[in-house]
Design a protein around this nucleic acid. Structure first.
Length: 486
RNA sequence: GCCCCCAUCGUCUAGCGGCCUAGGACGUCAGCCUUUCAAGCUGAAGAUCAGGGGUUCGAAUCCCCUUGGGGGCACCA
C-alpha cells in the first residue's frame, strides 16, 4: 500500500509551490490506489500563524485534493499534529542519546553565531564544532545538574558516503564529513523538522516522500537518522521548484503566491490543477488539456522534469478562458453566483427582481470573452444599471458631428419604437437597413449606438445585447444620449 | 566561502544514440472572419539543443571540464 503525505507547517498562506507538491502527492496516491495523508508540522511555536492551517486546508479542498487521514479525518496513525506527538520524539531522542548517537549541547546562541562568523571569515565550511560532544564527563554532569538550557544534537558519523537514489533525480551523494551535528530536539522540548519528519514518516508508514527540491540538501541528515534508528527509509523524490519571472524562488514580490489568491482572482480549480500539473510534468508532446481524472490515470513520477519552472501567468489566463468557454451556461452561471457570494467586492450588484433567465442571457453573451470570473463585473455592469455613465465626446464617432449623431439617434429611436418584436433578427434587419440609408459606415453607426447603449467602446454583439437589454431600456438610453447632446 | 541540484524557442515542455534540416502549447506578429471586443481559423518569426572536449559509424540524447542559473548551509520548516 502506497502512503504519501503532505506536511504543511501552519506558518503562512498556502503557497502555490506547496500546493502543487501536495497535488503531486495526491495524484501519486490516487494513481496507485494509495493513501494521501496531511500531517501538520507545527513544531515551531514561535512562528504559528492563526488561520494559516485553515487556509491551507481550504486551498486543498478548493482544488478537490481530499486527504484520507489528517485534520478532521481521523485515521489509525494519528494524531496528525506534531505538537500532539511530543512524547514520541522525546523517547526516541532518549534512545539515541543512550546509544551515543545524539548528545546534549549547552552552547549559547551567541557562541554559535560567533563560531559561524569565524568559520565564514576563515572560509571554512560552516557547522557545529562539537564543543559539547568533547566536554569532559565531569563538566557535562555539572552542566546537566545546573539544568542549563540545552538542546539535543544528532551525532553525525564520520567518513560515510551517503547515497540517495532519488525517484526524480537519480543518484545523489554526500560526504558525511561535510555534515554537522544538527539539532534534533530544541530547548523548548519540541523536535526540529529533521527529527519529527523522520519519526512520523516511519511511524505513519509513509512509503514515498515527494517534496520540493529545497529539501534535497537536508535529505542526508534524514537518511542518517533512519540509519541510526535502524529503520528503513522511505523512497524520496524531489520535485522541481517553481520560480518567479526573475528565476528566483516564487515569492510575494512576484505577485500572487497564495493558492487562495488565485481563487479570489477568478481562476477555476480545474485550471489550477491542469496548469500546475504542467509545471514540471507532461503527458506527451502535445496534450495540454487534462482533466483531474486523466491526470489521476496518467500521472507518473518518471515524467516529472528535474529543472525548475517559471510560473507563466499568461498561459494560466489562456487556460482559464478555455475552461470557462467549455462550461455549459448553467454551470458557469452558478459558478459566477457562488463566486460573487464569496467575494462581494468582485461582484456586480444585481438588483433584486432580476430574473434567472435574464442572468443566463447576460452570461451567455460574455462567456467567450471571459478569462477570469472577476472580469464579469466590468463586462456586464451595464446590463444591470438603470443609468450608464456616458462620455459625450466618446459618443461622437470619427467623422460624425453633433448634428449627424442627433439625427441618427432620432431615426433610430423612431425605428425601435415601431419594431414589432424586439429580437436579434428584427433588430439586425431594421438597423442595418437604417444604417445604409444614413450613409454612415457600420463602424460609425453601430459604434455610436454601442456607446449610447452600453457606455463602452466594446461590448458583446450589439443586436444581441439590445435584445437582452430590452426595448424600454434601449429607448431610455438613446433618449438620454440625445438629451446630453442637445 | 562550502555542499547539492539543474541547463532544448521569451515562457511551459516533447526528445531518453540514428525517425531532429529539433515537435507541441502560451505569448508575439500577419492575414481571414467581423458592427466593437473576444473567440475561431490560417500562416510567420522564434532554440547554432549554454560553451568546450571526449565516447561512437552516428549525440540535444552517454562521459568529463568550464560557464551560467537555482537551492541549501538556524534551537525555521
Amino acid at each position: 500500500m502506497i502512503r504519501v503525505r503532505f506536511a504543511p507547517s501552519p506558518t503562512g498562506f498556502p503557497h502555490v509551490g506547496n500546493i502543487r507538491t501536495a497535488m503531486f502527492n495526491w495524484l501519486f496516491a490516487r494513481r496507485h490506489g494509495g493513501k494521501f495523508i496531511v500531517r501538520v508540522e507545527d513544531t515551531d511555536q514561535n512562528r504559528l500563524v492563526s488561520g494559516a492551517l485553515d487556509s491551507i486546508l481550504e486551498a486543498l479542498a478548493w482544488l478537490g485534493l481530499q486527504w484520507d487521514e489528517g485534520p478532521n479525518v481521523e485515521g489509525p496513525y494519528g494524531p496528525y499534529f506534531q505538537s500532539q506527538r511530543l512524547r514520541l520524539y522525546v523517547s526516541i531522542t532518549d534512545q539515541l542519546i543512550k546509544d551515543e548517537q545524539a548528545y546534549y549541547c549547552y552552547c549559547t546562541p551567541e557562541r554559535l553565531t560567533d563560531m559561524r562568523k569565524r568559520q565564514q571569515t576563515l572560509k571554512q565550511p560552516t557547522g557545529y564544532d562539537r564543543h559539547c560532544l568533547n566536554l569532559p564527563t565531569s563538566e557535562k554532569e555539572n552542566m546537566y545538574g545546573a539544568s542549563k538550557q540545552k538542546v539535543v544534537r544528532f551525532r553525525m558519523p564520520n567518513d560515510r558516503s551517503i547515497i540517495l537514489e532519488d525517484l526524480i533525480r537519480g543518484k545523489v551523494s554526500w560526504d558525511s564529513n561535510l555534515l554537522d551535528d544538527f539539532v534534533i530536539l530544541k530547548s523548548d522540548g519540541y523536535p526540529t523538522y529533521h527529527l519529527a519528519s523522520v519519526v512520523d514518516d516511519h511511524l505513519m508508514e509513509i512509503t514515498h516522500v515527494l517534496r520540493a527540491e529545497e529539501w534535497l540538501p537536508s535529505t542526508p541528515k534524514h537518511l542518517m537518522i533512519y540509519q541510526a534508528l535502524n529503520w528503513d527509509a522511505p523512497l524520496f523524490g524531489h520535485m522541481p521548484m517553481i520560480l518567479g519571472p526573475d528565476k528566483s524562488k516564487l515569492s510575494k514580490r512576484h505577485g500572487a503566491t497564495s493558492a487562495l489568491e488565485y481563487k479570489e482572482m477568478g481562476y477555476l480549480p480545474d485550471t489550477m490543477i491542469n496548469f500546475m500539473a504542467l509545471l514540471g510534468w507532461s503527458l506527451d508532446d502535445h496534450t495540454e488539456i487534462l482533466t483531474q481524472e486523466t491526470l489521476v490515470k496518467e500521472f507518473s513520477l518518471d515524467r516529472v522534469v528535474k529543472s525548475a519552472a517559471i510560473f507563466n501567468k499568461e498561459k494560466l489566463d489562456w487556460m482559464n478562458g478555455l475552461y470557462i468557454r467549455s462550461m455549459n451556461l448553467d454551470d458557469l452561471t452558478v459558478r459566477l453566483e457562488d463566486y460573487w457570494k464569496e467575494f462581494p467586492n468582485q461582484a456586480l450588484s444585481i438588483p433584486t427582481g432580476v430574473s434567472r433567465d435574464y442572468l443566463l442571457k447576460v452570461v451567455s453573451l460574455i462567456q467567450e470573452r471571459l478569462k477570469l470570473l472577476s472580469e464579469a463585473q466590468e463586462l456586464t455592469e451595464f446590463f444591470f444599471l438603470d443609468d450608464i455613465n456616458l462620455e459625450i465626446m466618446e459618443l461622437l464617432q470619427k467623422g460624425m458631428d453633433v448634428n449627424v449623431t442627433l439625427f441618427a439617434l432620432n431615426v433610430t429611436l423612431r425605428e425601435l419604437r415601431a419594431i414589432d418584436s424586439f429580437n436579434v433578427q428584427n433588430l439586425e434587419k431594421c438597423l442595418l437597413d437604417l444604417n445604409s440609408q444614413l450613409e454612415l459606415s457600420r463602424g460609425q453607426f453601430l459604434g455610436m449606438l454601442r456607446m449610447a447603449l452600453t457606455g463602452k467602446k466594446s461590448s458583446p454583439p450589439l443586436f444581441a445585447t439590445m435584445e437582452v437589454l430590452g426595448r424600454d431600456r434601449c429607448i431610455r438610453r438613446l433618449e438620454s444620449a440625445r438629451s446630453s447632446l442637445s
